[in-house]
Nucleic acid binder design. Structure first.
Length: 251
DNA sequence: ATGTCCCAACTTTTGGGA
């Protein structure tokens, strides 16, 4: 089974590129973030034409998460207690998946930063109580770089969000529910950046971060055959500022 | 590091968010 997670930064602006990518890479399940669409505006027919069913939690201008699947969608789970469109879960071909869009945090002294930490802890609490009878994959834009290897220059980011100790500790609590960061597990020494700012020529300068993560439950992490970032998708005309992260599993 | 992109709006330019 092939699963991809991708923060598309507006599904409206990115639809042609997303469809092209789906056709070329043929994932069984696609987890999208930042659709920025009302639920009524979700392009159900365009995805159906490629064989995908969708489950979308949208709120319009901001946020928005979706699951696309060509192996079935059941037991859709919508959101956390904050009411924002940042989490959707579903069971696709026997695999339980979650598409996550963690709050950005903005700055360490911003109320949005405390909200980010609370949101991650609520996600951890939810996953700690999960049904462990089948395989689980939790992925999305976590807006946290787990370690210094995951950023181009730790010194340049000191004092900013995405790299602070409390954010990293919140990710560690999530992992402690029994999850494995499979890109890092398969590539222990490569940065594997997933996001580059649109500004300042960041992509070409290599100023990136690994903030889009794929977690698989520890019992099934050994079923992962490949886990990689498609950085070519960050190139070309009207790219998202995030690249897709692909995982192939032999469940 | 902030040279961009995307959205909404009493839209033709600005402000908010990332």
């Amino acid at each position: 089974m092939r699963v991809v997670t991708w923060n598309v930064n507006s599904l409206n602006a990115r639809l042609a590129r997303v469809l092209e990518w789906l056709e070329a890479n043929a994932p069984d399940v696609a987890l999208l973030q930042e659709t920025k669409l009302r639920e009524a505006a979700f392009p159900t027919e365009a995805f159906a034409a490629l064989g995908y069913e969708g489950a979308h939690v949208g709120q319009g201008q901001w946020n928005g998460v979706a699951v696309l699947s060509r192996v079935g969608i059941a037991d859709v789970e919508r959101g956390l207690s904050d009411g924002e469109a940042r989490l959707v879960g579903a069971t696709c071909g026997g695999l339980r998946v979650y598409s996550c869009y963690v709050p950005n945090g903005r700055a360490l002294d911003d109320p949005h930063y405390a909200y980010k930490l609370r949101w991650l802890d609520e996600l951890s609490d939810r996953l700690a109580r999960r049904d462990r009878s089948g395989p689980l994959l939790v992925a999305g834009d976590f807006n946290v770089a787990p370690a210094d290897l995951d950023v181009w220059d730790p010194a340049a980011l000191a004092g900013l969000t995405h790299v602070s100790e409390p954010e990293r500790a919140a990710l560690e609590r999530l992992e402690a529910t029994g999850l494995v960061d499979v890109v890092r597990a398969l590539h222990p020494d490569e940065p594997c950046f997933t996001w580059w700012d649109y500004r300042g020529g960041a992509f070409h300068r290599g100023w990136g971060m690994r903030i889009d993560l794929v977690y698989v439950d520890a019992d099934h992490a050994t079923a992962v055959r490949a886990a990689y970032v498609d950085r070519d998708a960050r190139k070309g005309v009207k790219p998202s500022d995030h690249a897709p992260v692909v995982v192939d599993l032999d469940l």
